[in-house]
Amino acid sequence: MSVQRNRVRQARAVEAAMKLVTGACAAAVMLSAAGLLGYLLVRGLPAMSWSFLTGMPLKDPPGIWPAIVGTFWLTVGTAAFALPVGIAAGIYLSEYAKRGRLTRLIRLSIANMAGVPSIVYGLFGAALFVMLLRFGLSLLSGSLTLACLTLPVIITSTEEALRQVPQDLRQASLALGATRWRTISKVVLPAAAPGIVTGSILGLSRAAGETAPVMFTAVFFLTGLPKSPFDKVMALPYHIYIMATQPVRPQPLVVWGSALVLVAGVSIVNVAAAAWRSRARKKVRW
């Protein structure tokens, strides 16, 4: 009896110790994330001012307006190319594809696309869009490159959101004499919209923060506001990289200010998307 009790006591002690160790690891991760955010705020907030956000880089004090505008248009361009194709591919996988070798191959391609290093997308974009198609260093080349990189995220989240829509609804629509496409466009897609939008925003905000893919396809360290899709642009991530690594006249205020703007922009958009989804979910529950 007492042997058994000892064993239990020992097991309990081990459990408590492991709980402590694993908890410490989790806490360390959480704290470093908090530290990252705190440090960004401390270093970045002093830079925040109207002239910083809306001014030009060569003025004194310098601003980052062209970089903000460039990142905005790159993201819009990415969305314009990646959303139609990505959502259509997600619809294909969820609504049209049959189980089989081709579908398996498509899924495998998507998983592997997601793992291709971003710099490799940059090489690909430089070879195809900049050189072969002669789009040059431009908003267009950069958007197309980023669209390729974002595609797997959008396809996967679209497919997942569509799969959440109960089969009953599709059956009901078909039984009313609606065609398959009408069923998808009028019933299935609206029901899945919150999931698709949130997933797409997640993917697009990641694209907005990418540096390597646009380095040789779209950005230049100092240029004006773009006037057409064939203009090169400035972009926040690249601006941060250039300002942080440039040996002459380092400008820490610009660097940390830009970093804070980038992180805040990405986080705010993500949080808003997640909040919207959870509100939409509350309204529509299966």
């Binding site: 990505g86 591919a89 619809i91 498509i106 696309m113 490799v120 997308y121 090489l123 390729c148 396809i155």
Partner: peptide, 29 residues
């Protein structure tokens, strides 16, 4: 219906197409 179905199936190939294009362009360059 047929046109939309065709377009969607075509998009389904996009992942394979992009991945193949990446491999081809890397190799050829």
């Amino acid at each position: 219906e047929a046109v939309v179905g065709r377009l969607i199936s075509l998009s389904g190939w996009s992942a394979i197409a992009v991945l193949t294009a990446i491999a081809v362009f890397l190799a050829s360059n």
